[in-house]
Design a protein around this nucleic acid. Sequence first.
DNA 1: GATGAATGAGTATTCATTCAT
DNA 2: AATGAATGAATACTCATTCAT
Lengths: 200, 200, 200, 200
Amino acid sequence: MTDSMGSRARTAAAKRQRLMTAAAQVVHRQGAERTTIADIAHAADVPVGNVYYYFKTKDDLVAAALAEHARQLELLTSRLEELDDPRERLKTLVEGWVSQRDLAARYGCPTGTLAAELDKRPEGGLDAEAGRVIRLLLDWAERQFRELGQPDPWDLALTLVGAYQGMSLLANALRDPDVMTRQGARLLDWLDSLPEAPAG
Amino acid sequence: MTDSMGSRARTAAAKRQRLMTAAAQVVHRQGAERTTIADIAHAADVPVGNVYYYFKTKDDLVAAALAEHARQLELLTSRLEELDDPRERLKTLVEGWVSQRDLAARYGCPTGTLAAELDKRPEGGLDAEAGRVIRLLLDWAERQFRELGQPDPWDLALTLVGAYQGMSLLANALRDPDVMTRQGARLLDWLDSLPEAPAG
Amino acid sequence: MTDSMGSRARTAAAKRQRLMTAAAQVVHRQGAERTTIADIAHAADVPVGNVYYYFKTKDDLVAAALAEHARQLELLTSRLEELDDPRERLKTLVEGWVSQRDLAARYGCPTGTLAAELDKRPEGGLDAEAGRVIRLLLDWAERQFRELGQPDPWDLALTLVGAYQGMSLLANALRDPDVMTRQGARLLDWLDSLPEAPAG
Amino acid sequence: MTDSMGSRARTAAAKRQRLMTAAAQVVHRQGAERTTIADIAHAADVPVGNVYYYFKTKDDLVAAALAEHARQLELLTSRLEELDDPRERLKTLVEGWVSQRDLAARYGCPTGTLAAELDKRPEGGLDAEAGRVIRLLLDWAERQFRELGQPDPWDLALTLVGAYQGMSLLANALRDPDVMTRQGARLLDWLDSLPEAPAG
DNA sequence: GATGAATGAGTATTCATTCAT
DNA sequence: AATGAATGAATACTCATTCAT
């Protein structure tokens, strides 16, 4: 029997994944507060009452959305690792951001806006989780700057990711994807301008 | 008679202002969605039912919070105008941001987080209003860069304000005010590095 | 001094009358339940808080609207009394109803719809008052039929006024003033068909 | 297995019907404006929050009440159709009205008073719906008069139904069921007096 | 496990009425 | 008397969560 986990289990896992994907998308578009369980259930084509077999609370679903974003991020960075030059990795990352400009202009950065929203809650909940996802990106970026031999790679990572968050927010607030394009170009220039191993 | 407008009128205007200030603060801390009218009423020490005498809907109160932020912003920039050098104005602005680092680390930039939240709503409401407030700051910054004789002053404004939004978001997500301090220092360096009227 | 009651009193009386007229109109259009004190105050151009110096409660205002309709009715019947023939009086009454067909098609008979609405309330309030106003019309009609020498003048009055109420309601429900015209013509025919003092 | 649709489904449908019946009754007694969702929920023995599972808004419930009246009306007319003679059908209809005299004296005609109330609202809502229900009765009555070979069957229908609405309103306003009895008798006489196929 | 239905706490909003001046 | 403002009770509606089958 090749169906070692049972078709039910496979369906269940698929349904769980469908819910996570739906949660990530819907929460990105509507925000966590304005998203109802029913919204997500509907987007995932899962009956409302059934959602609770996969996620005990709404917060669990939001955490799942966050995890889904983390997964996407890891997929992205692992693909970037295939590039030899850390500078190229960073530049390709920026190009990826720019290519998502329309989504950013409409809904902002998925992780950033979610982190901002969750940080409004009383301490000790999902806010820390959101911080962790953002730190994933920061850590990765820091590693690239370190490989490039830059001093203060953590600060550079903050600058890069901060610039991304900032330009996403402005593109969103101004509803203008062009902000992404032009600020993205500036980021690329900046990355190019960094010396090749300044400390020797 | 100094009480030319009647003490009631004065009280009424004061109460309205109290509600606006309270709305700005509470919404900054809790976000618009998680803030109830009762929260604001309580913070302003106004009976709940009475709030509606001053603001017809909750959205009106959120708009008032936004307007309050705009007012604060205009107060700030008008004070900055007293400085002769546009570069000094910009640097003082950045220093102001850094001085607010604890608030930013806890709740993010008031205008930025609010704009992000409002942009999650279906079009045609307060999102445009939020964009307008952010543009106030962008416009002012653009003017400073132009006075400095910089090329592409609008893009520079986007970079500056974007950096502020980004570092606020990261400081908030990481719950680390130090992000503000260090990224703020980098911004100051950047402002200093700009040539004095490069176009001649 | 001709201003024996004081200009204030005259103004007060005028204001009271303005409130009654406004109440009668607005309640006719919106119904008693959907009419707010503020609606009436606004229509009468009286500050909201001031209304309570003239009418202690909302119910008092509704009663005033009713009284206003009674006044109008008495004005009408007293004008009809100038006609010598009771049959002519009744026919002129019907013609008056038809001439109001557009108002009836839009809002029904003022007294009838108000009576219907007030009868939904728990006993012992304004419902009896509404009944009294309608009875004014019934009594007057009964007198005319009696003068005409008709048997069962009260039943004839009920038939006539009932027909008016019914055709107003149908014209209103169908939003068709023509109902008033055609049913009014039938009523006129019916009045004409009544024998001249059948009992001798 | 007789429980082919599942007991839940049966219960749900039953509950929905219970809510419709309760809505029809309570709205008849209290009027639409004075009826709260809680009133209907209580009358139907359904928890308030659950009502919204079956009807999204209060207006939907009022529409349901209207539909319930329409259903009752169709039940009635279909029973009347079993009589061979259209004149008998009409007379039996009138007798049915008279038999309901106590209810009419207390609360008026369910459809008529509801139509009157709904017509006070700003256009484009339930008022048209109410008109449609009344038209059902008018259409049926018109058909009977036509079968009787009467000229102007529509006008006769308006007269008959108008008389019913009028006498219900007067019985209600005067709180006197006797009005129904005596005016009903007059209607029966009138129906009897109509010639048997006057046009040929 | 799956599902429609149930539950109840929470929230914005309205409005008659009262109050302070 | 006049008036803007205050008050609080009511009410429609939402939604996370739970239940029964």
